[in-house]
Design a protein around this nucleic acid. Structure first.
Length: 739
DNA sequence: CATATCATAATTTTT
DNA sequence: TTATGATATG
């Protein structure tokens, strides 16, 4: 017995000892509400994962008593991985996942009482927009004024403030607002959208939150069950939660009150989606007896980077008091690069990566190029390809958003849920069955007029359509029936059924016959989807390996997440996608007014401050070196536009060293701009033996040797005009590269 | 109903 | 510039 205690203690200290004082305080304070304000790079994930391990080992919590909510799938996967490494066993039973995925799990059990089928469909943003387009058409409105994207975001905001369509239409205040926005019929659209989703047995992303909220606030039995079960709640990225998420969390924690929220107000970048930094303040107000810990020591970045980040965020007026500091070394000053065009920018960055890699013996995976918008990636991709540099792009389109994948998934969805209208719209004429736009429109009107569910109406096709159309529809219906019958048989599983559907629908055949490169790739993708489905079915950790469960899981995979981070590649991504990550060398590109901060965000102070927080996030991704670049001209919408440097560049520093190095960089590029293809600056890594350079005092010279002593890089340069050979410190020498 | 051609809008960020 | 959607034609 004594032996056992000793052993446990030994294990505990070993992992708690890796924490600093504040981190440890955050971990061992398990009972009662607790707020952890975690600065960038302060070991937030470490605290969360250690805390879960601590709860399991020390507090004897069972895995299923712990609910840990993250914002992205990637964060959840990473946490699970780290916990498992820490305690050396599988922690599948811990309720660890994104808000949306965990809520789907809760909802599935109660869907019927909420008026949905158990295996409701999940509409992604495309489905929602397509549905809105249909509604706009039905109401005979112009999609120039009633833009689907705009409508969807308004609906989303309403829902996330707990405003349903019914509440919306009852409140004259909203109608006035719509009139002001020149969208007088928005309320009507909202109501119809809600109705159609319900009728299709489908929830959109926001419904996953609102329905969970409804379930917990209206069904005391269900609510009590989960309040009882979840002894410990942990919330990651708390600053990004919205009102509805916060209220759900509160409700779930109402019995045990063991709720630990971790966040950084400086990194709140999802206000556009309804996230509310006020939630952090609300938390301290709602739980007056909370425990608070501030993690302020940064372990990630150099002093230069931490200082710059602090300067940036100090320009925001709304923020919690916090001082991020580090004992890391000073590091390289932050570089600012000016180029003439977006093309040159990409070429310069790629060249700099190659040279930094050589000089510092770095790997490609140590580098990341960050940008504000996905559309900026193209130039960089081309430049990287030209130099044969391996790269990976995070975000953009995910595997599950490929056309062919969505098509097969739509088939599967429709087999599971016969009223999934959006899935139906995708597949009814794929492959061609002679059912076109007018038939589809007629089906839409009929479901409204006859008040028939889609599936029933299809079954009665003969009553409503001419013979050839009706026959085509009935053949389709028969096929779906056969496929869905297999769902109930024991010999079949999700994989075999999907296989059957892919083959018998003609989808696979159609792709197989397409012998173009793209066609072959699409065929491969389908095979890939099928094999991932097989994996899903065979996974012993999977409680529910039904086809429906697979579809719900996959619906939330909107971001590409690859496991092959092991491969040595340069990473390209948006700042949003970079959140939570770190790289030795960060290139933050496109630092231009109108691009970053985005022109759309210049409207008000709050939006500008969110852009600034976004910049803060970008800067704090860097461990060793940060390079910021901007171009004086850029192609946008196919037109060449003149650009000005971003206001954020002025905000990074009042500090001497950085400021002077900025001057150097800028000056050098200006002088060489006219003469060269490239835009070299005082980036010392650009220099090579044999290069001709110009020094401000000594004039033209030839580099005959490059040295590095005591970490200081020097160059031996033979100057013309009687100056002779000089050894110069590259950090200080003002050199201009001549090609 | 299917296909080809033309016009036009788009670039914020994501579960 | 590119991608998507509307329109005209077969």
């Amino acid at each position: 017995m004594a032996n056992l205690i000793e052993q446990t203690a030994a294990i505990d200290t070993s992992y708690l000892n890796e924490l600093n004082e504040q981190q440890r305080a955050a971990v061992i304070h398990t009972e009662g509400p607790s707020l952890v304000v975690a600065g960038a790079g302060s070991g937030k994930t470490k605290v969360l994962t250690t805390k879960i391990a601590y709860l399991l080992k020390e507090k004897r919590a069972t895995a299923s008593q712990i609910l840990a909510l993250t914002f992205t799938n990637k964060a959840a996967a990473e946490m699970r991985h780290r916990i498992e490494r820490m305690i050396g066993k599988n922690v599948q039973a811990v309720w660890l996942g994104t808000f949306h995925s965990i809520f789907i799990r809760l909802l599935r059990l109660e869907a019927n009482s909420l008026g949905y089928p158990t295996y409701f469909s999940v509409y992604d943003a495309d489905d929602s927009k397509s549905l809105l387009k249909q509604i706009i058409k039905e109401l005979d409105l112009s999609d120039q004024i009633y833009k689907p994207t705009l409508l969807l975001s308004r609906i989303s905001h309403a829902k996330n403030r707990l405003v349903t369509a019914a509440i919306y239409n009852d409140n004259p205040h909203y109608r006035e607002e719509d009139a002001r926005m020149q969208l007088p019929r928005f309320g009507e659209i909202f109501a119809r959208y809600t109705h159609y989703c319900q009728r299709a047995g489908a929830m959109d992303f926001d419904d996953l939150l609102t329905q969970t909220h409804t379930m917990l606030y209206t069904n005391p039995t269900v609510c009590a069950k989960y309040q009882q079960q979840f002894r410990y709640l942990l919330i990651d990225e708390f600053q990004d939660t919205n009102l509805i998420q916060y209220q759900i969390i509160q409700k779930l924690a109402a019995q045990h009150h063991n709720i630990c929220v971790v966040g950084d107000d400086a990194q709140s970048i999802y206000a556009f989606r309804g996230a509310d930094i006020q939630n952090i303040l609300n938390f301290t107000r709602d739980y007056p007896h909370h425990h608070i810990t501030k993690l302020e020591q940064n372990y990630r970045s150099t002093q230069h980077i931490v200082t710059a980040a602090n300067h940036i965020i100090s320009h925001n007026t709304t923020q919690l008091k916090k001082k991020v500091w580090t004992t890391n070394k000073l590091g390289e000053p932050i570089k600012i690069i000016k180029t003439r065009s977006d093309l040159e920018e990409s070429q310069w960055i790629v060249q700099a990566i190659l040279e930094t890699k050589l000089h510092n013996l770095a790997l490609y995976q140590d580098f990341a190029i960050l940008y504000r918008t996905n559309s900026q990636s193209r130039n960089f991709e081309e430049a990287l390809r030209k130099k044969n540099i391996p790269y990976r792009m995070v975000g953009g389109f995910s595997f599950f958003q490929r056309k062919e994948i969505k098509e097969l998934l739509a088939y599967l969805r429709f087999v599971v849920n016969h009223n999934d209208t959006e899935a139906f719209k995708k597949i009814i004429n794929l492959p061609k069955r002679g059912i076109g736009l007018s038939t589809l429109e007629k089906i839409g009107t009929l479901t409204n007029e006859k008040k028939l569910p889609l599936w029933e109406l299809l079954g009665k096709a003969e009553d409503f359509f001419r013979a050839p159309t009706a026959e085509a529809i009935l053949r389709f219906v028969a096929f779906i029936k056969t496929a869905s019958l297999k769902l109930t048989t024991a010999e079949e599983n999700a994989y075999t059924i999907a296989n059957y559907i892919a083959k018998e629908s003609g989808l696979l055949k159609q792709l197989y016959e397409d012998q173009t490169v793209e066609g072959l790739a699409r065929y491969e993708h389908i095979q890939e989807l099928l094999s991932s489905l097989k994996q899903f079915v065979d996974d012993p950790n999977n409680e529910d390996n039904s086809l429906a469960s697979f579809l719900q899981t996959v619906a939330l995979m909107t971001q590409e997440y690859e496991d092959d981070t092991s491969k040595d590649k340069v990473t390209l991504m948006t700042i949003h996608a970079a959140k939570g990550l770190e790289f030795k060398y960060i290139y933050m590109v496109g630092m231009e007014e109108g691009l970053f901060p985005s022109a759309r965000m210049l409207g008000n102070q709050e939006e500008l401050e969110e852009e600034r927080r976004l910049f803060y996030v970008a800067v704090t991704r860097a461990q060793l070196q940060l390079t910021l670049s901007y171009a004086l001209s850029r192609y946008r919408f196919g037109k060449l536009m003149a650009m000005r440097p971003s206001r954020f560049l002025k905000e990074i520093s009042l500090e001497e060293s950085t400021a002077s190095s900025n001057k150097i960089a800028t000056a050098a590029t200006q002088r060489t701009a006219a003469a060269t293809q490239f835009m070299p600056c005082n980036n010392v890594t650009t220099l090579r033996v044999g290069h001709m350079v110009r020094h401000t005092h000594f004039g033209k010279g030839l580099i005959i040797q490059l040295l590095a002593t005591e970490g200081k890089r020097k160059a031996v340069i033979r100057f013309s005009n009687n100056v002779g050979e000089k050894t110069l410190l590259l950090n200080y020498a003002k050199l201009e590269l001549l090609i």
